[in-house]
């Protein structure tokens, strides 16, 4: 069983707020998930290379060519707030 402190840490890393009830709920789900991975881990994969990429594509490279960027109106259209062409966000450093 995964510890509640671990759940809190993961939630914090993902920047999501959980109620105590949600924490307990997730504790169950994640524990189940980890148990499944334990099952996978019991398989001998010594001779198998790690599969990182689902398809076999290598080194797709592009020429160093400048292309037109988006208009500033377009860039800022998704900004929650903007000021003088900048995205405006809450102050960065945490207490």
């Amino acid at each position: 069983m995964i510890e509640i402190t671990e759940i809190k840490k993961i939630a914090d890393a993902a920047r999501i707020n959980l109620t105590a009830e949600e924490e307990r709920e997730l504790q169950g789900y994640l524990s189940q998930m980890l148990a499944n991975f334990d099952k996978l881990r019991s398989i001998d994969t010594e001779q198998v290379a790690a599969t990182i990429y689902p398809i076999a594509v290598e080194s797709v490279l592009r020429e160093d060519q400048v292309e037109t960027s988006l208009d500033i109106e377009c860039v800022l259209s998704n900004a929650p707030e903007s000021v003088k062409g900048y995205f405006r966000v809450p102050r960065i450093m945490e207490e």
């Binding site: 000021v83 003088k84 062409g85 900048y86 995205f87 405006r88 966000v89 809450p90 102050r91 960065i92």
Partner: peptide, 18 residues
């Protein structure tokens, strides 16, 4: 980031240039 205050510790909000 362009900070509105004097330094990174004193700013109220940040302006981002990507």
């Amino acid at each position: 980031s362009v900070h509105s205050g004097d330094n990174i510790l004193g700013s109220e909000f940040s302006q981002m240039d990507y």
